[in-house]
Computed example of a mutant assay.
Amino acid sequence: MKRLILLFAVFLLSGCAYSFVGQNNAAVGGIKAIYVENIENLTTQPNLQTYFKGDIINTLKLDSRLSVVDKQLADGFLKVKIINYSVNPVSFSQSGFASRYRCSIVAVFSLFDKDGKPVIDEKQIEESEDFDAKDQVLATEKAKNKISKDVLKSLALKLRDALFVNF
């Protein structure tokens, strides 16, 4: 039993020093200070751009590899458009009524260097979340009040990841 505990402790401690130090210390194109432009909302769903910009800024501020700065201090500029918002049924009850819905949001973003040259040009990202609702009216309200905000937070994480791995 002591050997098992010792082996487990050695295994656990050996993983503590594993890291990717020195890799991706800046966004694609060497950008370390970024300005987030006002987001364009091309959907009919109001206020998505406000929530999304806040989520992007908060997500980027939590990442030590990149700082969010005023426009005059930036060496990169992020432009984002929300191009699609939908709430659709994805599962139906035995009686034929929708019981599960999916809220999906699609955005396109571009990253420009301080000279205005595109580093990432029109990259599309999409996120969705499934949720339960008794009917379309309740699904629309639930999506508007909570689910879409959760989807935007997840989309902000995807955008942050895409800034460091351009594929």
Results as ranks from 00 to 15, higher is better:
1 M>H: 02
1 M>L: 06
2 K>S: 07
2 K>N: 09
3 R>Y: 05
4 L>H: 14
5 I>C: 00
9 A>H: 10
11 F>C: 06
11 F>V: 04
14 S>N: 12
14 S>P: 00
16 C>P: 13
17 A>S: 14
17 A>H: 12
18 Y>P: 08
18 Y>L: 15
22 G>E: 06
24 N>L: 14
25 N>S: 10
25 N>K: 13
27 A>M: 08
30 G>I: 06
30 G>F: 12
31 I>H: 07
31 I>W: 08
32 K>T: 13
34 I>E: 03
35 Y>H: 13
36 V>T: 05
36 V>N: 00
37 E>G: 05
38 N>D: 15
38 N>P: 15
39 I>L: 06
42 L>K: 10
43 T>N: 01
43 T>R: 00
44 T>N: 02
46 P>H: 01
48 L>S: 00
49 Q>C: 03
52 F>S: 03
53 K>V: 11
55 D>T: 08
59 T>I: 10
62 L>P: 01
62 L>Q: 03
64 S>H: 12
65 R>G: 09
66 L>V: 15
66 L>S: 06
69 V>M: 09
70 D>C: 06
75 D>T: 05
75 D>A: 05
79 K>R: 14
82 I>E: 00
84 N>Y: 09
84 N>F: 01
84 N>Q: 11
84 N>T: 00
84 N>P: 07
84 N>W: 05
84 N>M: 02
86 S>A: 05
89 P>R: 11
89 P>I: 03
89 P>L: 05
90 V>G: 03
91 S>A: 07
96 G>L: 05
97 F>L: 06
99 S>V: 01
99 S>Y: 00
100 R>Y: 01
100 R>A: 04
101 Y>G: 02
102 R>Q: 13
103 C>S: 11
104 S>Y: 09
105 I>Y: 12
105 I>D: 11
106 V>A: 11
108 V>S: 06
109 F>W: 14
110 S>H: 11
111 L>A: 13
112 F>A: 08
112 F>C: 04
112 F>V: 10
117 K>E: 15
117 K>T: 14
118 P>Q: 04
119 V>D: 02
119 V>C: 09
119 V>A: 10
120 I>E: 02
121 D>R: 09
129 E>C: 11
131 F>Y: 15
131 F>K: 08
132 D>H: 12
133 A>M: 07
134 K>G: 15
138 L>V: 15
141 E>S: 15
146 K>D: 14
147 I>C: 04
149 K>S: 04
150 D>E: 11
153 K>I: 14
156 A>H: 03
156 A>S: 12
158 K>F: 03
160 R>G: 04
161 D>W: 02
161 D>I: 00
161 D>A: 04
161 D>R: 00
162 A>K: 04
164 F>T: 01
165 V>C: 03
167 F>W: 06
167 F>L: 06
